[in-house]
């Protein structure tokens, strides 16, 4: 009887093995070979890894990826908490707010990219028209700063609602007695937020930060449809670089870069998880 959980887990583990482990093993095997179209694969050991790690394009894409992720985390999580505070806590206002916040989350990544591409299009877009009114020459195809700002704005618009909904669910779960006790003690608004709200939000914010970290660190469709990785290489992130290498049939390089990419995601997720949830047990009691 005690072994029943394993039986229930077995189908999920089987599907996971086929859909995750087999492709990962294949990518590891590819990364150990030089594979070019029309020639038989040549085993090269870890040379592809050394080539990737010394490649300026890979390092540049990694720095851009990290910068993008840090930027959107610093914006989306605090903004989500702020929005969650602004949502009415009962009545039709709450329902309407939750529905409106949920709309961006329902739109597929590539559609979001295309919609923002139309917003940013230099001849017909609304953003260049508004920028021109302010005397600014906005061009997402030519100016790296414009491309970056638009990409960050796109991501903030698309994913801040997730942080807001998670924070809202966390806020709803805080018993009013905590706030009553803080009010009796004469705690200021900031003190109440810092010592009551924030510690109680830690579990949901941990999930929010992890989800947004992993998602933003693997962003692909939005830069592809919005900027195509340009101008130049300024919005070429790791996923984009790897896809480009794979499509040019440099499968060994793409495989090694993918494994390094996966390693960075796993390590940073683990570090984030340990940092954010480390004192969770203590604060939740």
């Amino acid at each position: 009887m005690r072994q029943h959980p394993w039986l229930f887990l077995f189908p999920a583990l089987l599907i996971m093995s086929i859909s995750a482990f087999v492709p990962m093993m294949t990518v590891v095997n590819y990364s150990l070979h030089n594979i070019f179209a029309g020639s038989s694969p040549e085993f090269v050991g870890l040379e592809n890894y050394a080539a990737v790690l010394s490649d300026a394009d890979f390092r540049g894409a990694l720095v851009r990826q990290l910068f993008f992720t840090v930027t959107i985390l610093l914006i989306e999580i605090p903004l989500g908490v702020l929005l969650a505070h602004a949502i009415p806590h009962r009545g039709s206002g709450m329902a309407l707010s939750l529905v409106l916040l949920g709309i961006p989350l329902l739109i597929p990544f590539n559609v979001v990219g295309i919609v923002w591409r139309l917003f940013a299009q230099s001849d017909i877009g609304v953003i260049p028209s508004l920028a021109a009114l302010a005397g600014y020459d906005y061009n997402v195809s030519l100016h790296a700063v414009d491309a970056w700002l638009t990409l960050v704005a796109l991501d903030v618009w698309h994913w801040t609602p997730l942080a807001a909904l998670l924070a809202f669910s966390g806020l709803q779960a805080i018993p009013p007695a905590y706030y009553q006790a803080a009010a009796i003690d004469g705690a200021s608004t900031w003190s109440t937020f810092r010592h009551v709200t924030l510690p109680r939000l830690r579990p949901v914010l941990t999930i929010g930060v992890l989800l947004r970290f992993m998602d933003s660190f693997t962003i692909y469709s939005e830069p592809l449809t919005l900027t195509g990785g340009g101008p130049g290489n300024t919005t070429t992130f790791l996923s984009f670089l790897i896809a480009r290498k794979a499509s040019s049939y440099e499968l060994g390089y793409a495989g090694a870069a993918s494994i390094i990419y996966l390693y960075i995601v796993i390590v940073l997720s683990y570090v984030f998880f340990q940092l954010l949830s480390g004192k969770q047990g203590a604060t939740a009691r």
Binding site: G45, L46, E47, Y49, A50, L53, S54, I260, Y263, I266, V267, Y270
Partner: peptide, 24 residues
């Protein structure tokens, strides 16, 4: 086990990045 595997991969990548594939 997880930390041992992750640190082994990290050490190998660091070695490859700094010294190349020789003497890995």
């Amino acid at each position: 086990l997880f930390l041992a595997i992750m640190s082994a991969i990290g050490l190998h990548l660091l070695w490859l990045g700094l010294a190349g594939a020789a003497w890995v």
